[in-house]
């Protein structure tokens, strides 16, 4: 496996490889999202309690799941960068953080839009909402730390450490927030318990989940390529590339 992975540690190879991946990811994502969201928003049955507002679910839940998944991915990249000194893993942290933060923000905003008709308030201090908000802060921390360093190599290392510290703390924060909530106000807000979904809802949900995942993949690959170019701008192959495009 090492023999297979080895070439991708070279920025040039990775650059061209992700370049080939992007169109595929984009096409798959477009198809899945059109079908999934189309089915979800237009044809899936309305919930018997929540009516049509349940349809925001097809946007909200994939965004929330991806926001956490991308953070985990960032932490794994951080571990790789620290343990095996992979420079490319540092670039991928820089690529993952803004995308993850955007998905977190989407999850929060759609959650607020869903909460208004369901709970009668844009925001409640529900445990899940709170830990999602804190996740957004953690993303901002990684991004801010990354931008604060002038030296990209140092920025990458610092961000790797922070991503690892964050991923250790995230479950602690999540469970403490959950306990805090039950401690203070009990179940005044009935959380949206995942209903044992009917297959008509599950199918569009899974389609849009994978659609969003491929969208995230597309965006991360694009940012990753930009990061590689920026960090290797003095290398001959980048200069040749720039000449080609001029």
């Amino acid at each position: 496996m090492w023999k297979w992975l080895h070439p991708y540690a070279n920025p040039e190879v990775s650059y061209h490889f992700t370049g080939k991946l992007i169109p595929w990811f984009a096409i798959i994502s477009a198809i899945l999202l059109t079908v999934g969201l189309g089915m979800g928003l237009l044809y899936s049955p309305a919930d018997y309690q929540q009516g049509n507002s349940v349809r925001i679910f097809y946007l909200h839940v994939p965004a929330a799941m991806l926001s956490m998944g991308l953070y985990l991915g960032m932490a794994i990249a951080g571990l790789t960068a620290l343990v095996w000194q992979m420079k490319l893993a540092e670039s991928s942290i820089a690529a993952l953080a803004p995308v993850g933060a955007t998905f977190t923000a989407i999850a929060l905003l759609t959650g607020a839009a869903w909460g208004k008709p369901m709970w009668g308030a844009w925001w409640v201090w529900d445990a899940r909402l709170t830990s999602e908000l804190i996740l957004l802060f953690l993303y901002f921390g990684v991004m801010a730390l990354q931008n604060a360093f002038e030296d990209k190599a140092l920025a990458g290392k610092a961000a790797s450490i922070l991503a690892l510290v964050g991923v250790i703390n995230l479950p602690i924060i999540h469970y403490s927030v959950e306990w805090w909530n039950t401690l203070h106000q009990g179940a005044t807000v009935s959380k949206f318990e995942k209903p044992s979904m009917s297959i008509d809802m599950l199918r569009p949900f899974l389609l849009s989940l994978f659609g969003f995942a491929f969208l995230a993949g597309t965006l991360v690959c694009m940012r990753f390529r930009a990061e590689i170019i920026e960090r290797n701008s003095m290398r001959p192959w980048v200069k040749a590339l720039a000449k080609e495009h001029n």
């Binding site: 804190i134 802060f137 921390g141 801010a144 730390l145 510290v165 602690i172 403490s176 927030v177 805090w180």
Partner: peptide
């Protein structure tokens, strides 16, 4: 920047 990095990590202590 320090406050942005550190304050989220303090939340569990505050809660308990």
């Amino acid at each position: 920047l320090l406050s942005l990095l550190v304050l989220p990590l303090y939340i569990p202590v505050l809660i308990f």
